[in-house]
């Protein structure tokens, strides 16, 4: 029972990380690093919370979260791709703006009017038959819709990136944009597309927090998840299955450290809290995956 609870918590913790990291993998494979994921997640979170609060529709909340994050993602893309501004600094600015905008909306709409309250959340949907499977059933098949979506999205995005011509173009844009340009493929449009895709998934990952995992919004709710997701991408060697496993590993370590704290070991809780980070480091050191980053990562493309 304890193990089922642990693994079930793992999946809950990992879901938003995997969403965001899948998107960022696409973006980085196309040569654009967006460190503004935390800001985009917050935009997604406040949009979803506000939308669900006023419309009561969870589906609408998720769509709105993705669109809002894409709007800010478009701004990032304009600066990073068209204007060719430094991607890292632009991303840092995006984080500040995301924190500010989400906090401002929260204060104007909710805190200052005194209507702070819980919203309804995505219910757990036990899948018929599958949820009856001993052990795996309650862990994998008695979760909310977003968790199922991440299970579906992972193989699809992996397939698209590795086996389709679109994926080939995306990967080529991140390695040799000039070659891509010379065969007549649109470098800018591919990069814009990947950035917007990443933004939509960051919005979704942010939305997961206030309308699926918990039922509230607060300033800074994401608590650094955007940065962890960012770390997952190089950790996984820029592969989709890798970020999926990396997200699960981190989620598992987090769920485990909470349980170790409850178990009252004779270890200072601060060290238990660092377990997810230590474990990520350990796996990084032990694994033999030494993929180099996309060659054109962080390098703006000069047409002509």
């Amino acid at each position: 029972m304890e193990l089922i609870a642990l693994l079930s918590a793992t999946v809950r913790m990992a879901t938003p990380l995997i969403f965001v990291a899948i998107g960022e993998t696409y973006s980085e494979r196309a040569g654009v690093m967006n460190i503004g994921l935390e800001g985009l997640m917050l935009i997604g979170a406040i949009t979803a919370y506000t939308a669900v609060f006023f419309t009561g529709s969870l589906f609408f909340g998720l769509i709105a979260a993705m669109l809002a994050a894409m709007l800010f993602g478009f701004g990032f893309a304009y600066l990073a791709v068209t204007i060719k501004a430094n991607q890292i600094v632009t991303g840092a600015a995006l984080n500040m703006i995301g924190l500010g905008v989400s906090g401002f909306i929260y204060r104007v709409v909710f805190a200052n009017t005194g209507i702070v309250s819980a919203v309804k959340t995505l219910p757990a949907i036990p899948l018929p038959f599958l949820s009856e499977i001993p052990f795996a059933g309650p862990i994998l098949f008695n979760q909310n819709a977003l968790v199922y979506f991440v299970f579906i999205l992972t193989p699809i995005t992996a397939f698209v990136l590795n086996k389709t011509s679109l994926g080939l173009s995306i990967r080529a844009v991140g390695e040799h944009p000039r070659a891509v340009d010379s065969v007549g493929l649109p470098v800018f449009r591919l990069r814009y597309g990947c950035i917007l895709f990443a933004a939509a998934l960051a919005g979704l990952g942010g939305a997961y927090l206030p309308i699926a995992h918990a039922n509230q919004f607060v300033e800074g709710l994401t608590a650094g998840r955007g940065f962890i997701a960012l770390t997952m991408v190089p950790f996984a060697g820029w592969t989709i299955p890798g970020v999926f496993l990396g997200g699960l590993l981190f989620g598992a370590a987090y769920a485990l450290q909470l349980r170790l704290q409850v178990a009252q070991l004779a270890i200072a809780y601060q060290f238990l809290q660092t377990l997810p980070y230590l474990l990520t480091l350990a796996v990084l050191i032990l694994s033999r995956n030494r993929t180099e980053q996309p060659k054109a990562l962080c390098v703006p493309y000069e047409a002509g």
Binding site: A85, V89, M96, L99, R107
Partner: peptide
């Protein structure tokens, strides 16, 4: 002025500084 509004302005300041090509 609330801190969140200032954060937005400051984020924009950094974006503008970088966009106006100081870096480039």
């Amino acid at each position: 002025i609330p801190s969140v509004l200032i954060q937005i302005i400051q984020g924009m300041t950094i974006a503008f500084v970088i966009a106006f090509g100081v870096y480039n």
